[in-house]
Amino acid sequence: MKKVVSKKNRGLTKSGPLLLIALPGIVYLIINNYIPMFGVFLAFKDYSYVKGIFGSDWNGFDNFKYLFRQDALLIVRNTILYNLAFIVIGTVCAILVAILMCELGERFRVKIFQSSLLLPNLLSWVVIGFIGYAFLNADTGFINKTIIRLFGGNEVAWYTTPKPWPFILLLVYLWKNVGYSSIIYMASIAGIDKSIFEAAKIDGAKKIEQIRYITIPMLKPTVVILTLMAVGRIFYSDFGLFYQVPMNSGALYDVTQTIDTYVYHGLMELKDIGMAAAAALYQSVVGFVLVVTANAVVRKIDRENALF
């Protein structure tokens, strides 16, 4: 029966008009994203200003060498581990906040909470770096000057003690992003048919059970899609978080250095365009391979939720 409908339906759905609707977006993406992609071949060139982009000499994979040195491995590990932590913990926290927010029901309180949680997202990393410094700085920081004095204990030279930094960075990440990403989940929860909850209530389901058996499963498509997108960017890192927040402190590099900051530090003096392009290509290709694989897996399990 269903098949018959969809066959009939396919007859009604013509591609032309739909493509026309999508046209402005397609044109924009071609111009903004696809045309500049010819720039990737800079990764294989020894750039010279006189010769220009097209005239510069090819130099094979020379520009990539610095990314595959022994010391670069640690950095790849950091990047991946941080991203995994951000994906998993970030998602859990965002969903939690979204669910609680939707349970409040009362608009005024939602408004207050939501505005406040979103506020950190409006700050630039430079400013967040300053805020972190206001708390952590060893000589005038709030933690050393006030909290530690109140509760006793030794002052900590935060910017030279690597141990707590994975937690600090995770905390700062959550602080900045949870409010923002919970909005997406709130919108998804709002989209759930209220009658399902009503029916569950009549059947005597408790709140916790409703969340467990209705809300969370209904959020699955959103979670899948956001995770897939995050996986594609697993080799990238938020430069500001890893550069501004630890104040670029050398003593912390073992735990704060990611691919983006490594590339930045390495190239600050040389400013080699080819090497920068090589790093970007490397990140994209790895992300691409990972996401295509992940998407294939999702498609196998649940066709509807795959990205493409």
Partner: peptide, 8 residues
């Protein structure tokens, strides 16, 4: 996933 970089 891919971008051509700022230069292009």
């Amino acid at each position: 996933l891919f971008n051509g970089g700022i230069v292009s």
